[in-house]
């Protein structure tokens, strides 16, 4: 089945310069280095990887909240980086973001109504009453009560605040939502509610998610496809079934075998990695994973593997991918 592509990312790269001063030109952090992927209409593409691998930066680059060093992001065929100020503002309504930290993502001085209603501000035709009606409707959709309209964020729990953040993102009617670890600050019991809310909203509103997470249990639940990142690069990108049944990249295998499972007496076939993630200031030459890869060979240390499709829709950046199954 050929799906419609909503977002096309090519060679997306972001280098941060750190420690620049009068006496030094600083060092370059390769936060995101040459990512290419597509996002299809109506799917959930999850980005997984360790802390600091560039997942969140990718999400912000896609929305052009930070400017890319190189590469293109095309939303429905239009290059986001080339849009003028006015066009970009219009496009912003179609792409929204849900944040990780429900404490710093809500302005403590505003009320619920003001926070959610902010997205309607640019919609000049709306009367005050109509605006309020829409905000209340959205509050109901995400499971907030109408009497909470005039409350301030500090009166809410983490889960409620996250619902508030979701309502704020969705009221402008986006098509694409970047969810930047929306669950990691929440209690496990609340996580389940918010995951289910996100899944329901996706069905009802026809959303596509770019879901950033390091929680593999959640990712398995919500994703259609999974992208695995390591040190600013994509290691593997495939459907959820393909990744969970037979990862082809040694890093994916190690990452997923590290996830705890609830099965009792499951054989411990864990792949344990040694060492730490190398610094993105000075990533290793060749394959970035070779310093920790149990299957690394000579060419991995010299040549950077190309990110290539092994079979339809299953992309891997590895010279010696694991056998299927």
């Amino acid at each position: 089945m050929k799906q419609q592509t909503i977002l096309e990312v090519k060679d997306l790269t972001k280098y941060f310069v750190v420690g620049r001063s009068i006496v030094s030109s600083g060092e370059v952090v390769k936060a995101v280095d040459g990512l290419s992927f597509d996002l299809f209409q109506g799917e959930t593409l999850s980005f997984v990887g360790e802390s600091g691998c560039g997942k969140s930066t990718t999400g912000r680059l896609v929305l052009r909240l930070i400017e890319a060093t190189r590469g293109t992001v095309s939303y429905k065929g239009r290059d986001v980086a080339k849009l003028s100020g006015g066009e970009l503002r219009k496009l912003r309504r179609e792409m929204q973001i849900i944040f990780q930290d429900p404490w710093s993502s809500l302005n403590p001085r505003l009320t619920v109504g003001q926070i959610i209603g902010e997205g309607l501000r640019r919609n000049k035709e709306l009367s005050q009453a109509e605006r309020k009606r829409r905000v209340l409707e959205m509050m109901e959709t995400v499971g907030l009560r109408p009497e909470q309209y005039g409350r301030h964020p500090h009166e809410f729990s983490g889960g409620q605040r996250q619902r508030l953040g979701i309502a704020r993102a969705l009221i402008v009617g986006p098509k694409l939502v970047v969810a930047d670890e929306p669950l990691s600050a929440l209690d496990v019991s609340v996580q389940a509610q918010v995951v289910n809310l996100l899944a329901r909203l996706k069905r009802e509103m026809g959303l596509s998610y770019l879901f950033i997470s390091h929680d593999l249990a959640v990712v398995e639940h919500i994703s259609d496809r999974i992208a695995v990142m390591y040190l600013g690069k994509l290691m593997e990108l495939a459907s959820k079934q393909a990744i969970y049944s037979g990862p082809r990249h040694p890093y994916t295998q190690a990452l997923f075998s590290a996830a705890p499972t609830a099965e009792v007496g499951r054989p411990a076939d864990r792949v344990i990695l040694s060492g730490d993630v190398p610094s993105p200031l000075n990533p290793p030459p060749g394959c970035r994973f070779h310093t920790r890869c149990p299957h690394a060979q000579d060419d991995c240390r010299r040549l950077e593997p190309e990110f290539r499709p092994l079979e339809s829709g299953h992309w891997v950046a590895c010279h010696h991918p694991l056998a299927r199954g």
Binding site: Q96, S105, L106, N107, E118, R121
Partner: peptide
């Protein structure tokens, strides 16, 4: 702060963000 980023993601301009 992320609420500033959120406001930018909604297409709001600098002056509005500073004052609001």
């Amino acid at each position: 702060k992320e609420f500033v980023e959120a406001s930018r993601a909604m297409g709001n301009g600098n002056i509005y963000i500073i004052f609001r």
